[in-house]
Structure formats: C-alpha cells, structure tokens
Amino acid sequence: MSSQVLTPDGPSKGTLTLVHLYPREMSIYGDRGNTHALASRIRRHGYSVEVVLHDPGDPFRADAHLVLGGGGQDSGQARVEADLEAIGPSLKAMARDGVPMLVICGMYQLFGDSFHTVTGQVLPGLSILEVTTRGNDKRMIGPVCLETDLGRVVGYENHSGSTVLGPGQQPFGRVLAGHGNNGEDGTEGARTANVIGSYLHGPLLPANPMVSDALIAVAAEQATGRPFEPAQLADPLATQARERQVRRLLRAR
C-alpha cells in the first residue's frame, strides 16, 4: 500500500480519502487517469485528498470516502481474486452506506452478481451491482457517447464480456453511439445509489468532469459532515474535448 496526501493551493475545506483498488493488476487503458483526474479535481475544489493505492494483501481502508477500480487482463484478475474476496464485505457495507465508487470494465464485472466464462464456469461476484456478465469471443471496441443523468458522457470501450442488467438495476446511461453493456439493449454500465459501474475506460473522468463532481460532492459531504462547497471551476478544455467528440460520434451514426 502507498498513500500520499495532496493539498489545495489555499486553505483546505477538509480531507477526502480516495482508494484506488489494485492499481498494478487492474489498470489498463489509462485507468490511472481516473484517479489522477479525481484527485486533481478534489484539490481544485479546495479539499485535501489522501490517495491510497490498495495492493492485494494490504489492510483495507474501510474509512475511505471514494473508491476507484479499473480493468485488467485475465492474469491481473487472477491476482486480485483472493484479496477481493477478503475485502468484499467491507466494500459491500460501504456501498450500502452510500460511499461513492467508480468501477470500470473488469472491476465493474467483479462488482456484479456473477461472471460466466466461455467454458461454462460461473464465477461469483460481489453483488454490489445487479448485473451478470458472459464472456464471449466478440470484442466490443470503440468510442462511446452516452446520455446519463449527469449529462452526455464520452469515452472508449474495450471489452469482450457481455453484461445484462437485473430487473431492478438502473444503467449508468443510454447508448447514443457505441456498444454499451451488450451491444443489444442500448444500456451502458450500471448505477446503484452512488456506485457507478461502466465499460468506459476513456479514461472516463478527465473529459467528463461532471461525473467527477457528482462523486466528489457526496464524498465531501460524508467526509466533512457539511454540504459540499464547490469552487467555481471552468473546464474549457474538457468541454471542448467532450463536445467535439459528441458531435463527431452523433454525426457519424
């Protein structure tokens, strides 16, 4: 485990603890960018942030205010299985208590009910999100644009698992361009209270700061016991990057 505290330029409004699960085993396609973006944005809002990198076998920080997880290769997933089983109950309790979490791709699948491999094996998940994933040979790759409760979101997906939402499960968004959970039902990701699962590596947060802000708002309130006190942040680059991508993807349809 390693942890680092970053402080804002001015006086700090409080400290948020952010845990990145398995940064070595489960971060490909720029998943570290999400942690980087979130930490940087917390600082710009005037809060301090303790970034904790959680490796397999480390004591788990159940006092965290934010949890992030990314995607991995098969070899990476195999290396985290035992630890994830050990910290699973803590993660579930935190999710129930409303701790905001963002889990991408492989970790999104592991947060679901189960994963069915191509060979017919059924691997249980943490059941934090009510989703089921089946491995298949078809890879779903490409740029994505979603309509979400937080506004239009852009990113890039790259997964072979095909995910189906359970009857009561809300998606993270509706697919405007791309494949989404399974390429068929127009849903992407899953969202239960403050837990978001998604296939968008992207990385998701830099170009979609409204998603960062939604996660930070909840975390800040829980960390300080006071309502979130945002700074007025201008995002001209993120706005341009996102809006250009939205136009491009929707025009191409």
């Binding site: 998943d31 570290r32 790259n158």
Partner: peptide, 9 residues
C-alpha cells in the same frame, strides 16, 4: 490507435 486513453499512462 483509435483509443487515446494511453496518453494517461
């Protein structure tokens, strides 16, 4: 490479 997320690595 269509995915530019590698720039974050």
């Amino acid at each position: 490479g269509r995915d530019v997320s590698w720039l974050y690595d």
